[in-house]
Nucleic acid binder design. Sequence first.
DNA 1: CATTGACTTCGAGCTGCTCCAATCCGGTAC
DNA 2: GTACCGGATTGGAGCAGCTCGAAGTCAATG
Lengths: 123, 123
Amino acid sequence: MDMKISEAAKRCGLSEHTIRFYDSSGMLPEIARGSDGHRRFTPRHVEWLTLLFWLRETGMPLKQMRRFASLAKAGDAGVAQRREILADHAEALKAKRAVLDKCERVLAIKIASYGSADDDAGA
Amino acid sequence: MDMKISEAAKRCGLSEHTIRFYDSSGMLPEIARGSDGHRRFTPRHVEWLTLLFWLRETGMPLKQMRRFASLAKAGDAGVAQRREILADHAEALKAKRAVLDKCERVLAIKIASYGSADDDAGA
DNA sequence: CATTGACTTCGAGCTGCTCCAATCCGGTAC
DNA sequence: GTACCGGATTGGAGCAGCTCGAAGTCAATG
Protein backbone atom coordinates (compact mmCIF):
# COMPACT_ATOMS: atom_id res chain seq x y z
CA MET A 1 0.00 0.00 0.00
CA ASP A 2 2.51 2.59 1.12
CA MET A 3 5.36 3.55 -1.14
CA LYS A 4 8.72 5.26 -1.11
CA ILE A 5 9.46 8.74 -2.33
CA SER A 6 10.73 7.50 -5.70
CA GLU A 7 7.42 5.78 -6.42
CA ALA A 8 5.40 8.76 -5.19
CA ALA A 9 7.46 11.07 -7.41
CA LYS A 10 6.74 8.93 -10.45
CA ARG A 11 3.04 8.95 -9.77
CA CYS A 12 2.45 12.61 -8.98
CA GLY A 13 4.76 14.25 -11.48
CA LEU A 14 6.86 16.14 -8.94
CA SER A 15 10.56 15.37 -8.45
CA GLU A 16 11.80 13.75 -5.25
CA HIS A 17 13.65 16.96 -4.46
CA THR A 18 10.50 19.00 -4.85
CA ILE A 19 8.48 16.62 -2.70
CA ARG A 20 11.01 16.92 0.11
CA PHE A 21 11.03 20.67 -0.38
CA TYR A 22 7.24 20.82 -0.16
CA ASP A 23 7.34 18.59 2.91
CA SER A 24 9.84 20.78 4.72
CA SER A 25 7.80 23.82 3.68
CA GLY A 26 4.73 22.50 5.45
CA MET A 27 2.64 21.88 2.36
CA LEU A 28 2.03 18.21 2.97
CA PRO A 29 0.01 16.35 5.57
CA GLU A 30 1.93 14.30 8.09
CA ILE A 31 4.01 11.64 6.46
CA ALA A 32 4.87 8.55 8.46
CA ARG A 33 8.47 7.35 8.53
CA GLY A 34 9.66 3.77 8.46
CA SER A 35 12.14 2.46 11.00
CA ASP A 36 14.81 3.41 8.48
CA GLY A 37 13.70 7.04 8.61
CA HIS A 38 12.35 6.96 5.07
CA ARG A 39 9.06 8.66 4.24
CA ARG A 40 6.16 6.31 3.56
CA PHE A 41 3.61 7.69 1.12
CA THR A 42 -0.01 6.58 0.94
CA PRO A 43 -2.28 6.90 -2.11
CA ARG A 44 -3.84 9.83 -0.26
CA HIS A 45 -0.50 11.56 -0.27
CA VAL A 46 -0.09 10.90 -3.96
CA GLU A 47 -3.52 12.35 -4.64
CA TRP A 48 -2.61 15.46 -2.68
CA LEU A 49 0.78 15.77 -4.38
CA THR A 50 -0.87 15.43 -7.76
CA LEU A 51 -3.20 18.31 -7.01
CA LEU A 52 -0.22 20.39 -5.85
CA PHE A 53 1.55 19.45 -9.07
CA TRP A 54 -1.23 20.89 -11.18
CA LEU A 55 -1.56 23.98 -9.05
CA ARG A 56 2.15 24.68 -9.32
CA GLU A 57 2.20 23.78 -13.00
CA THR A 58 -0.37 26.48 -13.61
CA GLY A 59 1.37 29.13 -11.56
CA MET A 60 -0.12 29.08 -8.05
CA PRO A 61 2.41 30.64 -5.65
CA LEU A 62 3.74 28.46 -2.84
CA LYS A 63 2.35 30.90 -0.32
CA GLN A 64 -1.19 30.14 -1.41
CA MET A 65 -0.46 26.45 -1.60
CA ARG A 66 0.68 26.62 2.01
CA ARG A 67 -2.52 28.37 2.97
CA PHE A 68 -4.47 25.71 1.11
CA ALA A 69 -2.54 23.01 2.96
CA SER A 70 -3.17 24.52 6.36
CA LEU A 71 -6.88 24.71 5.58
CA ALA A 72 -6.83 21.03 4.68
CA LYS A 73 -5.30 20.30 8.08
CA ALA A 74 -8.22 22.12 9.67
CA GLY A 75 -10.57 19.54 8.13
CA ASP A 76 -14.22 20.36 7.44
CA ALA A 77 -13.82 23.82 8.91
CA GLY A 78 -11.69 24.85 5.96
CA VAL A 79 -13.67 23.32 3.14
CA ALA A 80 -15.45 26.49 2.09
CA GLN A 81 -12.23 28.45 1.93
CA ARG A 82 -10.50 25.68 0.06
CA ARG A 83 -13.23 25.62 -2.51
CA GLU A 84 -12.86 29.37 -2.85
CA ILE A 85 -9.12 29.11 -3.42
CA LEU A 86 -9.63 26.52 -6.13
CA ALA A 87 -12.41 28.54 -7.74
CA ASP A 88 -10.19 31.62 -7.72
CA HIS A 89 -7.44 29.62 -9.30
CA ALA A 90 -9.81 28.37 -11.98
CA GLU A 91 -10.55 32.03 -12.73
CA ALA A 92 -6.83 32.74 -12.92
CA LEU A 93 -6.51 29.97 -15.49
CA LYS A 94 -8.99 31.75 -17.71
CA ALA A 95 -6.85 34.88 -17.55
CA LYS A 96 -3.82 32.81 -18.44
CA ARG A 97 -5.59 31.41 -21.43
CA ALA A 98 -6.40 34.93 -22.59
CA VAL A 99 -2.70 35.79 -22.36
CA LEU A 100 -1.84 32.70 -24.37
CA ASP A 101 -4.39 33.62 -27.02
CA LYS A 102 -3.12 37.16 -27.26
CA CYS A 103 0.46 35.97 -27.58
CA GLU A 104 -0.47 33.52 -30.30
CA ARG A 105 -1.99 36.32 -32.31
CA VAL A 106 1.12 38.46 -31.82
CA LEU A 107 3.33 35.58 -32.91
CA ALA A 108 1.23 34.84 -35.97
CA ILE A 109 1.52 38.45 -37.11
CA LYS A 110 5.24 38.53 -36.42
CA ILE A 111 5.88 35.29 -38.25
CA ALA A 112 3.85 36.48 -41.20
CA SER A 113 5.89 39.67 -41.30
CA TYR A 114 9.07 37.60 -41.63
CA GLY A 115 7.65 35.85 -44.61
CA SER A 116 6.77 39.00 -46.54
CA ALA A 117 9.26 41.57 -45.31
CA ASP A 118 12.51 41.89 -43.35
CA ASP A 119 11.69 44.14 -40.50
CA ASP A 120 14.86 43.79 -38.41
CA ALA A 121 14.65 46.33 -35.64
CA GLY A 122 10.94 45.88 -35.29
CA ALA A 123 11.05 42.11 -35.27
CA MET B 1 9.30 60.97 -31.39
CA ASP B 2 11.70 59.48 -28.89
CA MET B 3 10.62 58.93 -25.36
CA LYS B 4 11.97 58.28 -21.89
CA ILE B 5 12.07 54.96 -20.13
CA SER B 6 8.94 55.76 -18.12
CA GLU B 7 6.93 56.29 -21.29
CA ALA B 8 8.37 53.18 -22.95
CA ALA B 9 7.51 51.14 -19.85
CA LYS B 10 3.91 52.32 -19.97
CA ARG B 11 3.57 51.40 -23.61
CA CYS B 12 5.20 47.97 -23.68
CA GLY B 13 3.96 46.54 -20.38
CA LEU B 14 7.37 45.92 -18.85
CA SER B 15 8.56 47.79 -15.77
CA GLU B 16 11.37 50.34 -15.99
CA HIS B 17 13.47 48.00 -13.87
CA THR B 18 12.91 45.14 -16.24
CA ILE B 19 13.70 47.24 -19.29
CA ARG B 20 17.03 48.27 -17.79
CA PHE B 21 17.65 44.68 -16.84
CA TYR B 22 16.93 43.50 -20.38
CA ASP B 23 19.15 46.24 -21.75
CA SER B 24 22.08 45.28 -19.54
CA SER B 25 21.44 41.65 -20.47
CA GLY B 26 21.93 42.40 -24.14
CA MET B 27 18.37 41.73 -25.19
CA LEU B 28 17.73 45.13 -26.72
CA PRO B 29 19.09 46.82 -29.83
CA GLU B 30 21.32 49.84 -29.33
CA ILE B 31 19.59 52.56 -27.41
CA ALA B 32 20.77 56.14 -27.91
CA ARG B 33 21.42 58.31 -24.87
CA GLY B 34 20.61 61.96 -24.46
CA SER B 35 23.19 64.46 -23.23
CA ASP B 36 21.84 63.75 -19.76
CA GLY B 37 22.76 60.07 -20.14
CA HIS B 38 19.12 58.99 -20.20
CA ARG B 39 17.99 56.32 -22.66
CA ARG B 40 15.96 57.57 -25.60
CA PHE B 41 13.44 55.01 -26.85
CA THR B 42 12.01 55.01 -30.37
CA PRO B 43 8.70 53.41 -31.44
CA ARG B 44 10.84 50.60 -32.86
CA HIS B 45 12.20 49.93 -29.40
CA VAL B 46 8.72 49.89 -27.99
CA GLU B 47 7.61 47.41 -30.62
CA TRP B 48 10.55 45.17 -29.76
CA LEU B 49 9.94 45.49 -26.03
CA THR B 50 6.30 44.63 -26.53
CA LEU B 51 7.22 41.42 -28.31
CA LEU B 52 9.64 40.58 -25.50
CA PHE B 53 6.85 41.29 -23.03
CA TRP B 54 4.61 38.69 -24.61
CA LEU B 55 7.36 36.14 -24.93
CA ARG B 56 8.26 36.53 -21.28
CA GLU B 57 4.61 36.62 -20.25
CA THR B 58 4.18 33.21 -21.84
CA GLY B 59 7.26 31.67 -20.33
CA MET B 60 10.10 32.00 -22.81
CA PRO B 61 13.41 31.79 -20.91
CA LEU B 62 15.72 34.80 -21.06
CA LYS B 63 18.39 32.64 -22.63
CA GLN B 64 16.25 32.10 -25.70
CA MET B 65 15.21 35.72 -25.76
CA ARG B 66 18.90 36.65 -25.82
CA ARG B 67 19.47 34.30 -28.73
CA PHE B 68 16.50 35.82 -30.49
CA ALA B 69 17.92 39.30 -29.88
CA SER B 70 21.33 38.42 -31.21
CA LEU B 71 19.74 37.01 -34.35
CA ALA B 72 17.88 40.26 -34.81
CA LYS B 73 21.20 42.11 -34.62
CA ALA B 74 22.44 39.88 -37.44
CA GLY B 75 19.73 41.31 -39.67
CA ASP B 76 18.39 39.37 -42.64
CA ALA B 77 20.81 36.53 -42.01
CA GLY B 78 18.92 35.55 -38.88
CA VAL B 79 15.36 35.84 -40.14
CA ALA B 80 14.84 32.13 -40.76
CA GLN B 81 16.08 31.19 -37.32
CA ARG B 82 14.02 33.91 -35.71
CA ARG B 83 10.93 32.63 -37.43
CA GLU B 84 11.77 29.17 -36.19
CA ILE B 85 12.11 30.35 -32.61
CA LEU B 86 8.74 32.06 -32.76
CA ALA B 87 7.12 29.05 -34.40
CA ASP B 88 8.58 26.80 -31.69
CA HIS B 89 7.25 29.14 -29.07
CA ALA B 90 3.81 29.05 -30.67
CA GLU B 91 3.98 25.27 -30.35
CA ALA B 92 4.94 25.63 -26.71
CA LEU B 93 1.88 27.77 -26.17
CA LYS B 94 -0.32 24.93 -27.36
CA ALA B 95 1.28 22.65 -24.79
CA LYS B 96 0.65 25.26 -22.14
CA ARG B 97 -2.97 25.45 -23.12
CA ALA B 98 -3.26 21.69 -22.77
CA VAL B 99 -1.86 21.97 -19.24
CA LEU B 100 -4.36 24.69 -18.44
CA ASP B 101 -7.21 22.55 -19.76
CA LYS B 102 -6.08 19.55 -17.76
CA CYS B 103 -5.82 21.61 -14.60
CA GLU B 104 -9.26 23.07 -15.13
CA ARG B 105 -10.72 19.59 -15.29
CA VAL B 106 -8.85 18.58 -12.13
CA LEU B 107 -10.11 21.67 -10.34
CA ALA B 108 -13.69 21.11 -11.47
CA ILE B 109 -13.64 17.58 -10.08
CA LYS B 110 -12.04 18.72 -6.85
CA ILE B 111 -14.48 21.55 -6.35
CA ALA B 112 -17.39 19.24 -7.05
CA SER B 113 -16.06 16.81 -4.45
CA TYR B 114 -16.15 19.56 -1.84
CA GLY B 115 -19.77 20.16 -2.56
CA SER B 116 -20.86 16.57 -2.12
CA ALA B 117 -18.33 15.11 0.30
CA ASP B 118 -15.61 16.10 2.76
CA ASP B 119 -12.50 14.42 1.52
CA ASP B 120 -9.94 16.09 3.75
CA ALA B 121 -6.67 14.30 3.24
CA GLY B 122 -7.35 13.77 -0.40
CA ALA B 123 -8.35 17.30 -1.08
C1' DC C 1 33.33 -6.66 5.58
C1' DA C 2 32.89 -3.94 1.47
C1' DT C 3 29.89 -2.28 -1.87
C1' DT C 4 25.61 -0.86 -3.93
C1' DG C 5 21.73 1.81 -4.01
C1' DA C 6 17.85 4.23 -2.30
C1' DC C 7 17.05 7.17 1.02
C1' DT C 8 18.28 11.26 4.32
C1' DT C 9 19.66 16.37 5.39
C1' DC C 10 21.91 20.56 4.36
C1' DG C 11 23.40 24.12 1.73
C1' DA C 12 24.87 26.27 -2.54
C1' DG C 13 23.41 27.79 -7.11
C1' DC C 14 20.20 29.28 -10.67
C1' DT C 15 16.57 32.22 -13.08
C1' DG C 16 14.12 36.28 -13.49
C1' DC C 17 12.90 39.63 -11.58
C1' DT C 18 12.17 43.38 -7.73
C1' DC C 19 13.60 46.66 -4.73
C1' DC C 20 16.83 49.70 -2.38
C1' DA C 21 20.59 53.04 -1.88
C1' DA C 22 23.53 56.28 -3.62
C1' DT C 23 24.24 59.44 -7.13
C1' DC C 24 23.66 62.62 -10.87
C1' DC C 25 21.27 65.89 -13.94
C1' DG C 26 17.91 69.47 -15.46
C1' DG C 27 14.72 72.69 -14.16
C1' DT C 28 12.17 75.89 -11.07
C1' DA C 29 11.98 79.05 -6.67
C1' DC C 30 14.13 82.18 -3.91
C1' DG D 1 24.07 81.33 -6.97
C1' DT D 2 22.05 77.64 -4.29
C1' DA D 3 18.53 74.90 -2.53
C1' DC D 4 15.52 71.57 -3.84
C1' DC D 5 12.74 68.23 -6.46
C1' DG D 6 11.55 64.72 -9.83
C1' DG D 7 13.15 61.40 -12.63
C1' DA D 8 16.85 59.12 -14.39
C1' DT D 9 21.31 56.39 -13.62
C1' DT D 10 24.16 52.38 -11.59
C1' DG D 11 25.22 48.51 -8.57
C1' DG D 12 24.03 45.21 -5.55
C1' DA D 13 21.06 42.82 -2.25
C1' DG D 14 16.94 40.02 -1.72
C1' DC D 15 13.25 36.88 -3.07
C1' DA D 16 10.55 32.81 -5.11
C1' DG D 17 10.77 28.32 -6.43
C1' DC D 18 13.07 25.19 -7.50
C1' DT D 19 17.42 22.21 -8.74
C1' DC D 20 21.52 20.03 -7.85
C1' DG D 21 25.44 18.10 -5.43
C1' DA D 22 27.90 16.61 -1.26
C1' DA D 23 28.03 13.82 2.56
C1' DG D 24 25.96 10.67 5.51
C1' DT D 25 22.77 6.54 7.02
C1' DC D 26 20.82 2.12 6.57
C1' DA D 27 19.48 -2.64 4.36
C1' DA D 28 20.60 -5.99 1.60
C1' DT D 29 23.80 -8.50 -1.23
C1' DG D 30 28.37 -10.81 -2.75
